[in-house]
Nucleic acid binder design. Structure first.
Lengths: 204, 204
DNA sequence: GTCTATAAGGGGATAGAC
DNA sequence: GTCTATCCCCTTATAGAC
């Protein structure tokens, strides 16, 4: 696999390929991506891609794991911190997430869509099931609302943050938001979402 | 295009192909779908597919238009009915949408994802921009909350309904919901979402 | 490590028989 | 309308020179 972690300041060929693969896979998805496009985007030859990663599938797998981690990685430390109140958890979540998503607007659609086609990609990587169910977040939700399943609120929180990015093309096409306006709307949501969730949790 | 609307009780070849295309395109997306798979799924020959639809692209276009209509078609009549209060609009929306989505769980992901790759597919079909901006729904939202853009609430409503279906693979993979449990959760949301939206609209 | 050339097969589309 | 056979380009992957 050619020397891992070289810590050089210049960009290695491996990294150039990965960056190109990230871009192409995210734009077109696995099936519609061609290794030729990735090689060209990386400014190298097609044969070299196979030299480093052996196959399109293996390259995709690396990118996919990395992207899943990037999408959900920020959640775990916040959700699991027992020293944070439910409210401050939500503020931190919204803030961290909106920032990350503004820099990676296509990330949620890519990950959720590819995960749908290959659900096992998820299970293999980490054991989120246990991590979630024992989290202080779930405990706090249960305390606050014993009448509604925590999963409902988890969907709400994630949905309020992620959905605008998933629906971005529709928002732009329908004129509900312009490209610059979109950023403003999302920045407003950084403050609004925690308030909304709080209101949702108090519904009778 | 071989006799439109034959109103026969038996299924025409054209319909068999469309049904197969719907299934395959929805599962794999345009780029990863092969016309050979569609033909096999339809129980016919590959040549026949081209005889009816001339090309993969034209077939896809028909399916896509139909699916977009199916996903958003139910919204317009409700949103535009000035005789409905904001609250009853939301109840009707949630109810109609959850029903439809339970029967077409993959529809939102398919449409949003393909729309991202071909944003112009949307504009061509209908003029949603005007339809939306003049809707009584938007007017009612503005009256209720002049301090927050209506688009924010529109994203919330659609997000609360659609997001669980977009994230379904993750919910299943993480054990947050089982396949049967998922239906129960969504049926609960039918009643919960209007209440949540009401609470959101009253946030200070 | 990186290239050119090429093998081996996949995929969309059509010709032409029935 | 429906089929079989086929064309031809595109794609992944590897062999082998440098």
């Amino acid at each position: 696999m050619a020397g891992k972690r070289e810590k050089k300041s210049y960009v290695t060929t491996e990294e150039k390929i990965k960056a190109a693969a990230r871009k192409v896979f995210m734009q077109k998805g696995y099936g519609a991506s061609r290794t030729r496009d990735i090689a060209e985007e990386a400014g190298i030859n097609l044969a070299l891609l196979n030299y480093y990663f052996r196959s399109k599938e293996k390259l995709f797998h690396e990118i996919m794991m990395e992207r899943v981690q990037h999408l959900f990685g920020a959640v775990a430390p916040i959700i699991n911190d027992p020293s944070l109140s439910l409210e401050s958890k939500m503020e931190k979540l919204a803030s961290a997430y909106i920032d990350m998503l503004l820099e990676n607007p296509d990330l949620p659609m890519f990950v959720l869509n590819e995960l749908r086609k290959q659900p096992d990609l998820f299970k293999s990587q980490m054991n989120i099931e246990q991590l979630l169910k024992n989290s202080s977040f779930i405990k706090q939700l249960r305390e606050k609302r014993s009448d509604v399943e925590p999963a409902q609120y988890l969907m709400n929180i994630m949905g309020l943050m992620l959905f605008p990015f998933l629906a971005k093309p529709v928002l732009l096409a329908t004129g509900l938001a312009g490209e610059k306006n979109f950023g403003t709307l999302m920045n407003q949501r950084r403050q609004l979402i925690p308030k909304w969730i709080k209101a949702i949790l108090q519904t009778k």
